[in-house]
């Protein structure tokens, strides 16, 4: 067993953590930092529920050791809202009634934020392609695609998809 010190910034707060090297970033975010919004659906990198932003880019938190994130800036679902004010992507998903059980929602939201940051006006096909890395078993995806389209609309009036930090 080897324990390593990991310094990360999560949702704007810096954390200095001693973690066993084998532990994934997802487990450490959930268990040590207590941010349980990042979900584990498959733990082998397919379902996308654990998607976070790593230095602004989407990544699977289950396919990273926490030690690999040393020095990184991480955003989780809990870091999107500005206080009580939902992020436009969150508001859009609510408006579109995008989700049902919503276990997958954190991953979809993070993927959407990343997508719209890079491509503020994606086509429906581009949205579907980008979100195909996230599995949802409830909705058939149509409402989630509509949610992204709603986010495009909300963001075009309020600015960027980025995250306040």
């Amino acid at each position: 067993m080897s324990t390593e010190q990991v310094n990360v910034t999560i949702n704007g707060l810096s954390h200095s953590l001693d973690v066993e090297a084998r532990r994934t970033l997802a487990d450490v975010i959930r268990e040590d930092v207590g941010l349980t919004g990042t979900h584990l659906g498959c733990e082998h990198g397919v379902c996308g529920a654990c998607t976070i932003l790593l230095d602004g880019q989407p990544a699977r938190a289950c396919l990273m050791l926490a030690v690999q994130a040393d020095g990184a800036e991480i955003t989780t679902i809990e870091g999107l809202a500005d206080g009580d004010e939902m992020h436009p992507v969150q508001r859009a998903m609510k408006e579109a009634m995008a989700f049902q059980c919503a276990f997958c929602a954190p991953g979809f939201l993070m993927s959407t934020v990343a997508l719209l940051e890079e491509n503020p006006n994606p086509s429906a096909e581009e949205i579907r392609k980008e979100l195909s890395g996230n599995l949802c078993r409830c909705t058939g995806y149509q409402s989630i695609v509509a949610g992204v389209e709603t986010a495009v609309r909300l963001l075009s009036s309020t600015g960027t998809a980025g995250v306040n930090q």
Partner: peptide, 9 residues
């Protein structure tokens, strides 16, 4: 190659 989140890493 995989999905974007995979290509990030």
């Amino acid at each position: 190659i995989g999905h974007r989140a995979i290509r990030t890493r």
